[in-house]
C-alpha cells in the first residue's frame, strides 16, 4: 500500500485513506470543536501525507506518522484562528487536588469524551490532548505551542480540574472523592 502511494497510485492512496481516515478524523475532532474544521484538518493532512510520502521511512509506524501530520495540521488551524493565544499560568498548585479516578475514564462513553473535551477552553484542551493522549512532554508542548513549560503544566492542571467537574456533572465520579 505504502509502495503504491510512493508510486502515486491513486488506488493505493484511496486504500490508505479508507483505512486510516476514521481514526484520523477522530484525532482531528479532539482538537477542533467543529466537525467541519476537523474535516478540513483531515483533508490537509492526507494531502500532505501523500505529497510527502517519500519522506516516510519504513522503519517507523505509518499510522503514527500520519497521526503526527494530523496533529500538526490541527495545531496550525488553531494558530491560524488565534485560538491558542489565551494561556493561564498557575503558581502554586498541587496536582493531587485535581486527580481524577481512573475508573471514571474506563466507563466513559465515546460521546462523552468529545463532550468533555469540547467543554474545555482551547488552550486546556490542546495541552490535555497533546500530553495525555499523544504522550508529548511539557517541553515539546511548550515548543509546539510557543508557550512556557510552566504554562503548559498549568494548562494541564486546569484542564484536569475542569474535566473532574464535568465528570461529576455527568455522573462518572462522586463529588466527594
Amino acid at each position: 500500500m505504502i509502495t503504491g502511494c510512493k508510486a502515486r497510485d491513486r488506488r493505493a492512496q484511496r486504500e490508505v485513506y479508507d483505512r486510516y481516515s476514521p481514526t484520523m478524523l477522530a484525532v482531528a475532532r479532539r482538537y477542533t470543536q467543529r466537525d467541519a474544521d476537523a474535516e478540513d484538518v483531515l483533508v490537509s493532512a492526507f494531502f500532505k501525507a501523500f505529497d510527502k510520502i517519500d519522506t516516510f521511512t519504513e522503519s517507523g509506524s505509518f499510522e503514527g506518522w500520519i497521526r503526527r501530520i494530523v496533529v500538526n495540521e490541527a495545531l496550525m488551524l488553531l494558530r491560524k484562528k488565534h485560538a491558542l493565544k489565551q494561556a493561564a499560568e498557575l503558581t502554586e498548585v498541587n496536582p493531587a487536588n485535581y486527580s481524577i479516578p481512573a475508573r471514571a475514564a474506563d466507563r466513559l462513553a465515546e460521546a462523552d469524551i468529545l463532550k468533555l473535551l469540547d467543554s474545555m477552553p482551547v488552550g486546556y484542551r490542546t495541552v490535555f490532548n497533546l500530553y495525555v493522549i499523544e504522550g508529548y512532554k511539557h517541553r515539546e508542548i511548550a515548543e509546539q505551542l510557543g508557550i512556557s513549560i510552566n504554562t503548559s503544566k498549568s494548562q494541564l492542571i486546569l484542564a484536569k480540574k475542569r474535566m473532574r467537574e464535568q465528570l461529576e456533572q455527568l455522573g462518572y465520579t462522586a463529588p466527594n472523592h
Binding site: A26, L42, A102, I113, Y131, V132, I133
Partner: peptide, 22 residues
C-alpha cells in the same frame, strides 16, 4: 492511571468522514 485509561478510550474513537472529503 486516569491518563492511561482516558488515552485508551480516546484512541478507540472513530468518525466516518463525509464522501466529499476524499
Amino acid at each position: 492511571p486516569f491518563d492511561q485509561a482516558f488515552r485508551r478510550r480516546a484512541n478507540s474513537l472513530r468518525r466516518t468522514p463525509s464522501p466529499r472529503a476524499w
